[in-house]
Design a protein around this nucleic acid. Structure first.
Lengths: 208, 208
DNA sequence: AATACTTTTAATCATTTGATTAAAATATAT
DNA sequence: ATATATTTTAATCAAATGATTAAAAGTATT
């Protein structure tokens, strides 16, 4: 096989394009991103984008699919682990997601705003229907409620509370900074604090 | 003056365009909205859009400004009312915003995603710098904390928790429906429930 | 009714934008 | 070294898109 060297180069340009596309799609969304900007950002010729990925749409689908599978793979593995307790999962989910989102702050807005533009296409592809409500995590919560450890709560409320507390700050960051004291370093420090605080708060909600 | 009759017509077409623009901009965002779609949606000739509003940008700025001022006017009047207690404000904010957002579900995603594209331009225009942190609402919270009614919490955490619990469900609706039981009627009923529940939960957080 | 002003329309423009093509450059195989 | 295959480039295309224009239609004023 004489493709080793070229395959490496292939992958290198392909990956350059993907990285630039990831950056721009996540920052500006599909509609506001120009293929020329992706080409420029990755330092390649515009035609190479179509050579490697056929079209802007195809490239976008690839980037989005990778973002979604990355997002849900971690979620699935945590919430359906039969060997960890409800509380374990709570800590692990908050810690894992805040850590990941501090590295890539744009992911939540990217996923949620593009899902809003095209909910069926994007959500049907990933195999996540009733993912939460049928999970070990939620079953464990319901067991705890039945056992009297926590007060009754509808799983949907729990889900909204949990995601709201964890994910919302990343979505609303510019507004929160503006309405608050506007210190970004402080903001990131507070997000680190929330790894510890959110599980405590969630448990407080569950006792109310 | 001979403009009365025509003024009414003016306003009617102007308003038709604005309504269509509001609908499409809020649903699809600035970049994905075509002026032709606005024209078609409002049943007017494409040229009238420019006749009345000069450009797509200008029309967008108008729509966005009205959305922002509507959003913040209510907020300001509630959080700086010296005659209501902290708890009063809590109930009123949650109730007012959930009621409004149930009528126009797209507003939060619209505002937050467009602010993300252009934070300085959009946030500087509205006079809301440190709006929350310098409000009577937050001052009252701090008094209550000093008085030992609530446990200490950083105002930013409070703000993120409060907004997260209230606003996040509207932003993540398609995903929440997909991860949960997918019943939209049920979802709306749960949002109604949250008017009562969020203040209770917030107070639970503040006691933890 | 005649005139002036405002609103609306159809046609068209200029740019932007996603995509393609044919040739050049580079790498691989014989 | 030559031939073949792959990758890259510059030039160009066609459609989409925001905007303009000049004429038509409608309304108000005298």
């Amino acid at each position: 096989m004489a493709k080793e060297a070229s395959k490496i180069l292939d992958k290198s340009t392909e990956e350059k394009i993907k990285s630039a596309a990831r950056l721009l799609f996540q920052q500006k969304g599909f509609a506001a991103t120009r293929t020329r900007d992706i080409a420029h950002e990755s330092g390649i010729n515009l035609a190479l984008l179509n050579y490697y990925f056929r079209s802007k749409e195809k490239l976008f689908e690839l980037i989005m699919m990778e973002a979604l599978t990355g997002f849900f793979a971690v979620l699935k593995s945590i919430i359906n682990d039969p060997n960890s307790s409800f509380e374990d999962k709570l800590y692990l989910l908050v810690d894992t997601y805040i850590t990941r989102l501090l590295i890539n702050e744009d992911i939540p807005m990217f996923i949620l705003s593009e899902i809003r533009s095209n909910p069926k296409a994007l959500l049907k592809v990933i195999n996540a229907e009733r993912l939460m409500i049928d999970s070990v995590f939620i079953h464990q919560l319901q067991k705890q409620i039945e056992a009297g450890v926590y007060k009754p709560i509808h799983p949907n409320h729990f889900l909204m509370n949990f995601m709201g507390l964890t994910v919302f700050p990343f979505i609303a960051k510019p507004m929160i900074l503006h309405l608050g004291d506007g210190n970004e370093t402080e903001f990131r420090k507070q997000l680190e604090e929330r790894k510890r605080l959110i599980p405590i708060w969630i448990k407080a909600l569950l006792n109310t």
